[in-house]
Structure formats: structure tokens, C-alpha cells
């Protein structure tokens, strides 16, 4: 082994390894990223729903990102019932005002927070939804009131793009 320029040799090998590692990283990234949601999936990441035909007291279910979303146009009774619930009575305390900015419209993922079944509309002891799998009861704000589910049904990001259309996601 030549002792002539040990520092130069060290630097050369270190530089080669370092630059090689950069390349290795650059190669690995596309292989990982290709498993991320692709452009066509991301394009469906938001869905626009026409709700003009919904009368108060009616619920529709739409598919968003492969999951059901309940859109309910609530009656005045349902709204006041939801607003009058005390926070101490809730397993997952959430104000109805925070869940439904426009009180007439309730938009939430129709997925039971227990183990993922789809709860049934207009059923259960709290005038909301009932999940038949393990007996979770949800109220008119979609909050868990009785049963094993730990959380209220999730409210996704949504907005009214015009008076008749809700954009979810």
C-alpha cells in the first residue's frame, strides 16, 4: 500500500462512496413512490355532489375515496336535538356547531368508528344511526351515544361550491 498520498486516497474513496450513496437514494425513491396514490386516484380525491333534490329529513349516501358518505338535510327538530346535548353526556365530546357549520347539512363518513361497518339510517335509540354489527348508536349529529364505538362518525373536509353542490375532499 502506497503511503505517498494517504489523504488524497482517503478523500477519493470517501467522495466515491458519498456520490454513490446519493445515486442509490435517487434510484430507490421512484420504487417507493410508485406505490403512492397515482394521478388518477388523486384526481378522484374530491367528489362533487348535487344535493338540490334533498328535502329536509332525507339522507343520501355517496361514494367518496371508496367509502360511503352520509349527507343528511336535517329538520329543525333534529338540529335542536343535536344542539341541546350536554358535552358530559358524550363519549367523544364534540359540539354540533363544530360538526355542521351550516346546521341544516350534516356530512360525515358513514363508517362506524368501532370496526368499520356502515351504520343504518333512521335507526337506533337516538334518532340518528344504528350500527347492526356490534350495536353502536349515533345521534342526529352522528355522535356516538351508546355502544362500543369510541369516536363520532368522521366529518371530512367539504364545502358548498354553490347552493346545490357540495364538494367533498
Amino acid at each position: 500500500m502506497s503511503d505517498k498520498k494517504p489523504e488524497r486516497r482517503e478523500f477519493l474513496f470517501t467522495a466515491t462512496y458519498a456520490i454513490g450513496a446519493v445515486g442509490a437514494g435517487a434510484v430507490v425513491w421512484p420504487l417507493i413512490d410508485q406505490m403512492n396514490p397515482d394521478a388518477s386516484v388523486k384526481a378522484l380525491a374530491s367528489t362533487e355532489v348535487d344535493v338540490s333534490s334533498l328535502t329536509p329529513g332525507k339522507t343520501i349516501t355517496v361514494l367518496w375515496r371508496g367509502k360511503p358518505v352520509f349527507i343528511r338535510r336535517r329538520t329543525q327538530d333534529e338540529i335542536s336535538e343535536a344542539r341541546s346535548v350536554k358535552m358530559e353526556d358524550l363519549k367523544h365530546p364534540e359540539k354540533d356547531e363544530d360538526r355542521a357549520k351550516d346546521p341544516e347539512w350534516l356530512v360525515m363518513l358513514g363508517v362506524c368508528t368501532h370496526l368499520g361497518c356502515v351504520p343504518l339510517n333512521d335507526k337506533g335509540d337516538y334518532d340518528g344511526w344504528f350500527c347492526p354489527c356490534h350495536g353502536s348508536h349515533y345521534d342526529t349529529s352522528g355522535r356516538i351515544r351508546k355502544g362500543p364505538a369510541p369516536l363520532n362518525m368522521e366529518v371530512p373536509k367539504y364545502e358548498f361550491v354553490n347552493a346545490n353542490t357540495i364538494k367533498i375532499g
Binding site: M1, S2, R9, L12, F13, A15, T16, I19, G20, V22, G23, A26
Partner: peptide, 20 residues
């Protein structure tokens, strides 16, 4: 460009090693 740079570095590393 990256491959050319790395090739040059590896080339000189190779020469250095083989000089033994």
C-alpha cells in the same frame, strides 16, 4: 451527468487500488 461523474470517481479509485 451523475453517472459520468461517478464513473470518473470510480475509475480513479480503481486505478488507485490496482496500483498495489
Amino acid at each position: 451527468v451523475y453517472l459520468i461523474i461517478l464513473t470518473i470517481l470510480v475509475y480513479f479509485s480503481m486505478k488507485r487500488i490496482w496500483s498495489r
